[in-house]
Write a protein that binds this DNA or RNA. Structure first.
Lengths: 200, 200
DNA sequence: GATGTTTGCCAACGCTTGTTGACGAACTTA
DNA sequence: TAAGTTCGTCAACAAGCGTTGGCAAACATC
């Protein structure tokens, strides 16, 4: 049998011997991430990704089934959210904005996901899932009223994703020009207020 | 001669007789706006737009030259920014957020532009132009220090575009669920601070 | 009524896309 | 060494794309 190899044996994970083709698989994923981040879903063609990875386009199909499967495999996001429990309440804004900026600048997957999410339904749903599973839980740690958690997490998302959009996707010059500390100094109070301040 | 008719005689403008084909032109633009807003640049095909407008695809080419020309003609954005001069300083945040929300909900062109801007270079540059020509000037009316105008306008853009992104493009459920008054109540102080508060 | 222009449809072009299947080389196992 | 599996290339496909040019009907002008 020679299917699309949907049972990927987690090559990077410690256990399991590394297969001979895993270098190729990794090269494909790296190229895919780069293309998706730079051009979005439709314009990142399988042929271009294969060329970047220096292999034949049909290999992409064999290892990831189809383009959708490649995208799903390429963008696996772990925001690695910090634990806000043992933190002074007044620091959560600064810590979150700092963490968010760091994450975004070292990880092109996030830009890829945002670019794709803007035009692709599957991409948008993926982002919704990340928000629900990784952002809302940490909001639950600091929100005064549990009932307000979704709304407060949502407000935080508007500010942080708006920063990512204008800085890393649209690249508005004055947003790009801001130093990281400036961004933190301005945005931290906003996030702080959305998460912890009493309702207006 | 029978060129792409680049000298469009502004049919809707009061002066100038309305040509026989202007209904077709308008139908094309309306269909294009809808498709671009719903699917982004690449997936909004000329064939689909023509079908929506109930005409032949070749008509689109004759009237707008090519797909790029169609996009340029379809998304002409006027934010109709209010004059902040005769306004109490403490009201600018609320007025701007309210205006922004209204604009965005009655005008699908804005969603089209944001969706396209995320994957298309021309779209991103168009957004930069709107920010530069329509947003920065009104920031200039209320900013204390002229030198800080770009940065403060940029911060405002991160918040407002982040709201548009999560509410109208990605459609995060908790953001969609917010009532307009809630959005204004939460975001107005943020915008107010970005534009008028002393630097942090 | 004849002439020229405008409006629209039709058929086709060249190209790119995702995707498939056959086949040889490289490697593994016995 | 022999058999079987894995890895990779090549050539091709069907479909869809933006785009083009020709031609017929509708209209305007004289």
């Amino acid at each position: 049998m020679n299917g699309p190899d949907s049972s990927s044996p987690s090559p990077a994970s410690g256990s399991g011997t590394r297969r001979r083709s895993d270098d190729t698989r990794d090269a494909i994923l790296a190229a895919a991430r780069e293309r998706f981040a730079a051009e979005g879903y439709e314009r990142a063609t399988i042929r271009a990704i294969a060329k970047d990875a220096a292999i034949d386009p049909s290999m992409v199909m064999r290892y990831y089934g189809n383009k959708e499967g490649l995208f799903a495999a390429a963008v696996a996001v772990d925001l690695a959210m910090p634990d806000l429990g043992p933190l002074p309440r007044q620091d959560v804004g600064r810590v979150l904005v700092t963490h968010f900026l760091g994450m975004w600048e070292e990880n092109e997957v996030l830009t890829a996901l945002l670019r794709v999410g803007a035009t692709n339904q599957a991409g948008a749903e993926r982002m919704q899932g990340i928000f629900r599973d990784q952002v809302m839980p940490i909001a639950r740690q600091v929100c005064p009223d549990p009932e307000q958690v979704p709304a407060r997490a949502a407000l935080t998302a508007t500010q942080l994703l708006g920063l990512a959009l204008t800085r890393y996707v649209l690249r508005f010059p004055p947003v790009v020009a801001l130093a990281r500390e400036e961004v933190v100094a301005w945005l931290a109070p906003t996030v702080q207020r959305y998460l912890t301040a009493p309702s207006p």
